[in-house]
């Protein structure tokens, strides 16, 4: 199906209505973080389901409600739709108790994802804080599978506690990939912690901007992203080449319910990924 027909099919379709999906995989990543691998139970819908890294789905837990979760699987190389979820709220606590074979509802994909076309041929810096690594892991995997299309890759992951760092074995593998720098730090260390221990985002100071042709993509607390952007632009990066994934209360996911407004932007529809230049006037302002 072409982009056009997908768009027009969606215009006719009721974007509020979920479809059924089966949990095919359930992976406990840490004490509170888990990954659901989903397959839409209608094979035709599953085959026709297209998405881009950085987009999200609304996942429905029967009788409890919906929650917006980013898609972490690779749209071209993975059959299952995977979502990595932190058990923090009413709906996600419910999802944490599900098992393989159980059914949930899915509607999506929604939003504007990462600028992967634009990043081709350029150096890429990927920065995340806390569970921000879930949205960006889709980009990291995407680039790793197509490594030759991109320049130098820098991956920065900052966590407060070592428990928040999931997928250590993946980061070990990323380190072995040529032309790739991996920087991981935790505010608090522990006995088996093999990466850096540093406060705030001091680890950023190790990031090098090697070329004017560099794109940065980041996800995490807004204060962290703001400091990181200021640092990267001080090294010569363009504000329009720094992309941030924002998060707000989302209920409808189609720009109608009003909860996710960030100034004039609807994060669910106009984002969640924005160029810094699009949002800098309000980023970091209390209550926006």
């Amino acid at each position: 199906m072409t982009q056009m027909t997908v768009a027009s099919a969606r215009a006719r379709h009721n974007a509020y209505l979920p479809v059924e999906a089966e949990i095919v995989e359930f992976v406990q990543e840490s004490q509170t973080i888990f990954t659901l691998g989903l397959r839409l139970t209608d094979p035709a819908l599953h085959a026709a389901y297209h998405y881009a890294p950085g987009q999200f789905n609304m996942l429905y837990l029967h009788g409890v409600g919906e929650v917006a979760i980013s898609i972490v699987s690779d749209p071209e190389h993975e059959d299952l739709l995977t979502h990595t979820i932190n058990r923090v709220g009413r709906v996600t606590r419910g999802f944490a108790q599900l098992q393989v074979g159980q059914r949930i509802g899915v509607r999506g994909p929604f939003g504007r994802g990462w600028p992967l076309r634009e990043a081709e041929g350029q150096d890429v810096i990927i920065l995340s804080g806390g569970l921000g690594c879930a949205p960006v892991i889709s980009v990291i995997n995407y680039i790793m599978r197509r490594r030759e299309r991109f320049g130098h890759l820098t991956i920065v992951q900052k966590v407060k506690h070592v428990d928040e760092f999931i997928w250590p074995e993946r980061y070990e593998k990323f380190k072995q990939v040529p032309d790739t720098t991996v920087l991981v730090a935790s505010t608090e260390g522990s006995v088996n912690w093999r990466w850096d221990v540093s406060p705030r985002i001091k680890i950023l100071e190790e990031v090098q901007v090697r070329s004017e042709r560099t794109v940065a993509m980041m996800c995490g607390p807004e204060g962290m992203m703001q400091s990181a952007t200021q640092y990267l632009t001080s090294l010569g990066m363009q504000e329009s080449s720094v992309y941030l994934s924002l998060e707000r209360n989302m209920q409808c996911a189609v720009g109608h319910c009003g909860h996710c407004q960030f100034g004039g932007q609807f994060i669910c529809k106009d984002g969640p990924v924005f160029a810094y230049s699009e949002i800098k006037h309000l980023l970091g302002t209390r209550g926006i």
Binding site: Y16, G63, G65, E66, C257, G258
Partner: peptide, 18 residues
């Protein structure tokens, strides 16, 4: 235009209306 969504299940959990 702001509105919120809520799930309202039946007591036996077999059905839910959004």
């Amino acid at each position: 235009f702001c509105h919120s969504e809520s799930a309202e299940p039946t007591l036996d959990g077999s059905s839910n209306t959004q």
